[in-house]
Structures are given as structure tokens and as C-alpha cells.
Design a binder for these strands. Structure first.
Lengths: 118, 118
DNA sequence: TTGCGTAACCTAGGAATCCGAGGTATATAC
DNA sequence: GTATATACCTCGGATTCCTAGGTTACGCAA
């Protein structure tokens, strides 16, 4: 059963976007999801079934640390903060993503010198 | 065991790039892989263990059709050609990728109005 | 003629990640 | 008191990629 357009571009980029969101300020999971959706005009939807496992893995890898706190809505929430390793990983991933996106756009735009049989 | 930079951006884009490569002219699997690598200066590497299963699935979905032929190197090879459905899918995926890439870059560039607690 | 490198195909099994579906708890508004 | 929104969680299926293995056959050189 495919998703809406049976494509899966999100794979791998979720971590990157979480790290980036946390680079501005600590935030909790629910807030991260809402921020990403809002800032992309709902083009990117962050499902909770993806978000929380992803956060837990980032924590296991030592890229973020979590701490319980209280939101402005007076609700208990787990606030995540980037570690030094997380910042380094963010830089690396960001870089890698940039190179990747350029490469894909080359494939999508480049007219073939000879893509034929080779 | 992570790959090189433990990131997996390729997910989902392989199909798109295959379809795009075939939009220029029919080609065989091995040629498609070499073309994508060459045209991206080896930033994107297409492994055979990913490529052939992907091609078979595209064929199952009716997006491409295959036909045995002979290459310029006088070797037997399966040539893939885009179907009408394949062209339509290519357009859709291309579009979706464009919107996705824009959305990601928004997350990566946008300064937070208030990504804080929400 | 034997051997090597390259071209070209294939599959099986494991790993990673996303998502749908389900569940919990509580503050505020009505 | 009931609904809505906030905020967390996990399980299991589905998908997709890659590693590692294997096959066939051309062309060239030793």
C-alpha cells in the first residue's frame, strides 16, 4: 500500500531537519514537527510514528540530549538540545545534502552527451 | 554498519533518476548506472544490487518495458524503454521532487520565527 | 589456448527507516 | 463533564537499499 504519491523522498532527511530545527533553540518533539510543517507550508508532514523513534535514535547516538520540562501550555514535555557532536553531524549532513541535491538536479536537467548504450 | 556518511538520501530518488535517464533514449541497466555516475561526477553511485531490483519493479508497475538486444560492445543486454505511464510518472515524480527539495531547503535556511515550544 | 579484464545480468538476506494504528495522560475551553 | 489540543510512546508491516555472492560471454594478450 503506497503512500499518497508512492515516493519516499523523506528517507534520511528527517534526521537532518530535526538537527537543523534544534540548532536554533532547544525544542520538544511535538514542537519540532509543527515547526517543520509550518515552515514548509505543510509540504513536509512529520508523522509521530517517525518522529519519536528518530529522536530516540539521535539521543542514543549522542547527537542530542533530552530533559523533561514544561511548555508554555503548562504541559510536561521532553526538550531536546543539540550536543557538540550533534552540531558537527548537522554540518556534515547539511554539506552532504547540498552535494546530493546538486547531483540529483544534474541528472534531472542534464541533456545526454551519450546516455545511450555506453 | 552505516554506509560512508551514514546517510541515506538516495531513498526514493533512484526510480526518478532511472526514469529520467530513460526519457532521453532507451538504455540498459549497466548503461543507466554508468550514466548517472558520470553525470554527477561520481557523487551518486548506483549499486547493482539496487539497480536491477528497481528496474524489475518499474517493469512490474508498467512504467518501463524491456527488450533484449545487443550493445555496441556486441554484448547481450536488456534495453529498457519508457512507457506512456512511465512518462506520466516521471512528470509527477519530478514535480514532487522539486517541491520536496524546496521544502527541505526552507527548513535548512529559514531562521525561526518561533520554533521554540510552539 | 589459456587467462584476464570488462561488460552485463541476476538473487538472497540483512539492515535501516517510515508510517499507520493503536495507546496514555492532562490542561484548557465550552 | 466532555471535547479539543497538546504531548508522549510502541509495535509491526512495508519499502528500499546494499553487501555478497554468482553467472555468462566478449576481446585481447601472453
Amino acid at each position: 500500500m503506497p503512500a499518497a504519491p508512492q515516493i519516499d523522498f523523506l528517507r534520511g532527511t528527517l534526521d537532518l531537519m530535526i538537527l537543523k530545527t534544534l540548532s536554533w533553540a532547544p525544542a520538544h518533539g511535538y514542537g519540532i514537527a509543527r515547526w517543520i510543517e509550518q515552515c514548509t507550508d505543510d509540504v513536509l508532514q512529520v508523522e509521530e510514528g517517525s518522529l519519536y523513534p528518530a529522536l530516540h535514535k539521535l539521543e542514543e547516538r549522542g547527537l542530542v540530549v533530552a530533559e523533561w520540562g514544561v511548555t508554555e501550555h503548562n504541559r510536561r514535555a521532553k526538550f531536546y538540545r543539540l550536543t557538540a557532536a550533534g552540531k558537527k553531524q548537522l554540518a556534515t549532513s547539511h554539506d552532504y545534502w547540498a552535494r546530493f541535491a546538486v547531483a540529483v538536479s544534474k541528472v534531472l536537467k542534464t541533456a545526454p552527451a551519450a546516455p545511450r548504450t555506453a
